[in-house]
Nucleic acid binder design. Structure first.
Lengths: 340, 340
DNA sequence: CTGAAAGCGCTTACAG
DNA sequence: CTGAAAGCGCTTACAG
């Protein structure tokens, strides 16, 4: 391998001069700089990452913790991952992908071995077992997903409370007075998916406030269960005119259910979902939805993390909790309810 | 950070003895070993990865190159990624995920900076621009996907040629004599998806050999195009009794098309696809299919790579091209053709 | 069975 | 504006 010593020799300077010429950390004459650059080019020099990390205690690597859970829609996960890796690369960092069962152990291991400069955690649960080690390791960490206790970490998530309100408000504004809200299965909540009840609770509160009759159900997350569930809900509430979906499987199953019941959207039923744009494209879903903003969340998370790593954020300053305001991607599935 | 010097001091031995006690590379008395281990435990020692890499020229990190292309079904990609990262971890390696636009540049950069011990390339095209740098960098590389030129790399893929034959043979064995084969769009082939014509060519050859009438089409990969395409193919060949799908979008769109035409499977039409099991689950697809074996391919690729890195494979020995034999996952969508 | 020392390649404080 | 030297933490050949 070619080292900075080789570069220095080829350029006829000392190793320190070669190093400074490349880093720009002290003024080097243009002629010398040119010779160094030429040598780098000609020899194909790339600094040894291990040596640099050993010296500087900076690795230019971020750890990305993804949890691959059943029930979870994979393309959405991939979008987060892509958002994170792309942004990291733009900012000069590589990404170590950790899908370890043993999340807490992996955090300690990677921090102890000084392999990474910081951590991005995806799919964060209400009570997440990775948070305790993360807080203890003294390396910055950013979460995508809002846990119960946010101290010591930066947090980015969709504002699910505002999302619940927005769904109900929007449908109410169109004239709907009876709605069905379909949430993820209860075991998603039990595993720590607090976003499910966050959205449902605010939806219910807003419905109460507006005098809307809102029926809330947990439902299966995949076929055939979810199809049967949807039929059951619609049977139980024949006068409901709006369907709010915080359950990706329900959105995917709905077109078949509508066809079986001979319902047309938005003529007979108005529908709004909460899922990512890739999800909509993958299943060709014709329903308006609040976008999960996966790539934006991944992007913001990395920017914040790198700002911290590189000292652009005062360590004493309070941590960020950024909840992205929901935006409805309109696909034309909402209208005034049918006249009675 | 705690170093091996701290451990040595706590155990009352020299740094070299501490190191040897941990690596086991030379005999150390049980008492001393115990003291070292206790010190490690108590101090929470983890070796500094950069220092170790600098000394040993081994990083215990693999680079995983994923290409996120449109048209590509993401869950399948995620399955490969999971197969690779999990296997790597089991073998003591971390995984650097690279989704760089600049694949060739990233290979040179990571190799030059000695950040990784080897490369796994996903989604390899017939003529892949990452192969030239990979061959030049003198670090082992394993491909998932069969390129035109396999020299200097280990290759793992599903045997698409055998898959084409198997589809036709199996349907022929059930009595079918006229079939439709639906391939991915032509631009997938143009981008280097040679597996498309590999499967189609052997299917056609086998059909000729068996006297089967096989109609081959390229089709769109997503709705609404693919639905229209399927209708068109079925209209054009009213006597075809079997449908062979080497196009995930076609498989996902087929249930709706069948319903619209009032066709039942396998009574009116026998169907076989080629897609992963997660894909089938995600879309609740009721069709028998040749599994893409994503996790198995990822697993084998990493095992082979690590064997090479760790010198368990003679560098002079020829490289591997392992094509996994297709297996049909039977979901009951194939039967004898309807009596005329 | 154990220890003192060298050196991997880099950056940066020290010296001029 | 440039150079010689130290030291990051590790492993291993050298010495006993």
């Amino acid at each position: 391998m070619v080292t900075i010593g080789d570069v220095a020799k080829a350029a006829g300077v000392s190793r320190s001069t070669a190093s400074y010429a490349l880093s720009g950390k002290r003024p080097i004459s243009p002629e010398v700089t040119d010779r160094v650059l030429a040598a780098v080019e000609q020899l194909g020099y790339t600094p040894n990452a291990g040596a640099r990390a050993l010296r500087t205690s900076q690795t230019q690597v971020l750890a990305l913790f993804a949890r691959f859970v059943e029930d979870e829609f994979a393309p959405a996960m991939l979008e987060y991952i892509k958002g994170v890796t792309d942004t990291a690369r733009e900012l000069g960092y590589d990404t170590l992908l950790v899908s370890d069962e043993d999340g807490p152990g992996a955090i300690r291991r990677l921090s102890g071995s000084q392999m990474v400069d910081g951590f991005v955690l995806l799919n964060v649960a209400e009570e997440d077992d990775r948070l305790e080690p993360l807080r203890s390791v003294h390396r910055p960490g950013t979460l995508v997903g809002l846990p119960g206790d946010t101290h010591g970490v930066d947090v980015f998530d969709l504002d699910f409370e505002a999302s619940g309100r927005l769904m109900v408000e929007h449908m109410h504004g169109l004239g709907h007075r009876e709605m069905i809200l379909v949430s993820q299965p209860e075991d998603v909540v039990r595993r720590g998916g607090a976003y499910v009840w966050r959205l449902a609770d605010t939806a219910k509160a807003k419905a109460d406030e507006l005098g809307v009759d809102l029926h809330h159900y947990f439902a299966a997350s995949s076929q055939p269960g979810i199809g049967e569930d949807l039929h059951r809900f619609l049977d139980a509430h024949p006068h409901a005119t709006a369907l709010l979906l915080n359950n990706e499987g329900a959105a995917a199953a709905l077109p078949a259910v509508l066809q079986e019941r001979g319902l047309s959207v938005p003529h007979d039923l108005s529908v709004i979902g909460r899922y990512s744009d890739v999800f909509a494209r993958t299943f060709s879903l014709p329903f308006s939805a609040i976008d999960s903003a996966a790539d934006r969340l991944g992007r913001h998370a990395v920017q914040q993390l790198v700002d911290r790593i590189e000292g652009r954020i005062d360590a004493a300053a309070p941590h960020t909790v950024e909840l992205i305001a929901p935006e409805i991607h309109d696909r034309g599935s909402m209208a005034a309810p049918p006249a009675v």
